Computed example of a mutant assay.
Amino acid sequence: MSQDEDHDLTRQDEDIDAAHFAAEEMRDAHDFGNWPELIGLAVAAAVIWYSFSFTG
C-alpha cells in the first residue's frame, strides 16, 4: 500500500473535494438505499414493543 492510499484511508468526507468523493463512491459500488435504516427502525420498534408487552 502506498503512502497516498494510506492517507486516503484516514481522510474524512469533509476533507475530500466533490469530484474525488464521487469517484470514491462509484468505486465502492454499494448502494443499499434506505433499506438498512428502515430495517433498523423496524427492529428497534419491535424490541421496544416486546419490552413493553412483557413487562406490562
Rank of each mutant, 00 (worst) to 15 (best):
M1I: 08
S2G: 12
S2W: 00
Q3H: 08
D4N: 07
E5F: 11
H7L: 10
H7E: 10
D8S: 12
D8V: 10
L9Q: 13
L9F: 12
T10A: 07
T10V: 08
R11D: 07
R11A: 14
Q12F: 08
Q12A: 13
Q12Y: 08
Q12G: 12
D13A: 14
D13F: 09
D13V: 13
E14C: 05
E14F: 03
E14Q: 04
D17W: 00
A18S: 08
A19D: 08
H20A: 03
H20S: 04
A22G: 02
A22F: 02
A23E: 09
A23T: 08
E24A: 10
E25C: 15
E25P: 10
E25S: 15
E25K: 15
M26L: 15
R27G: 14
R27Y: 07
D28S: 14
D28K: 10
A29D: 04
H30G: 14
H30V: 12
H30K: 13
D31A: 10
D31G: 12
D31N: 08
F32M: 04
F32T: 05
F32I: 00
G33H: 01
G33F: 00
G33L: 00
N34G: 12
W35Y: 14
W35M: 15
P36G: 05
P36D: 01
P36S: 02
E37K: 13
E37Q: 14
L38K: 07
L38M: 09
I39P: 00
I39A: 11
G40C: 06
G40S: 08
L41C: 08
L41T: 09
L41Q: 06
A42C: 05
V43G: 06
V43F: 05
V43H: 03
V43L: 07
A44G: 13
A45H: 03
A45Q: 03
V47I: 09
V47A: 08
I48M: 06
I48E: 00
I48T: 09
I48P: 03
W49I: 11
S51E: 01
S51V: 13
F52K: 12
S53K: 00
S53N: 06
F54Y: 07
F54W: 04
F54I: 11
F54R: 08
F54G: 14
T55K: 03
G56D: 10
G56K: 08
G56V: 07
